[in-house]
Amino acid sequence: MNSSQSHPPDGDSPDALERRIASQPFRPLPSDWKHVLLPPVTSPASGLSALREFLTPSRWVWGTLAALWVLVAGFGFAAERTARSGISLVHPDAPRGSDRMEEWRQRQELISLLLDDRMPGDRQPAAPPRPRSDLRAVRHGRRSLLRISRRRLPRISHES
């Protein structure tokens, strides 16, 4: 039992062939594998590079957003300047809002009057809708009448 627990000796001293085998170098590790095999490592000191990595893939999106922001800011600045100087952007001869509303209301009234004048004379009173069962009965009655009439009609003999 003791023999199974004791570790085996590490072999006899290696002979010349064994030493020669052991001295053969394996093919070298490809130098470009390091970047492939090692997963990307983030270090806390690389905050600027992390920001750059965040911005770089969507450079166009960030550029468009920045341009829009500049446009909106410029427009806001210009609007503020005109408000301070008292210049109105509306033409002085243009009708005011209340006048436009009054004109629109008058047009609506005119249209409604024109429509009301046409309605009583032109339209026929609509017949009240009939239930479907009546329609079926009418169709069925016509068919049965046709059958009866065909049976009762005397046949014309070609011999006579």
């Binding site: 394996f26 093919r27 070298p28 594998w33 390091k34 095999l37 090692l38 997963p39 270090s43």
Partner: peptide, 23 residues
């Protein structure tokens, strides 16, 4: 190497590659 993983790679990757490619 900046990172421990990089240090492990530099120290042992060649031996690990030889073992893996032999098997």
């Amino acid at each position: 190497p900046d990172h421990p993983l990089e240090r492990l790679y530099d120290d042992h990757a060649s031996a690990l590659f030889a073992f893996a490619v032999n098997l």
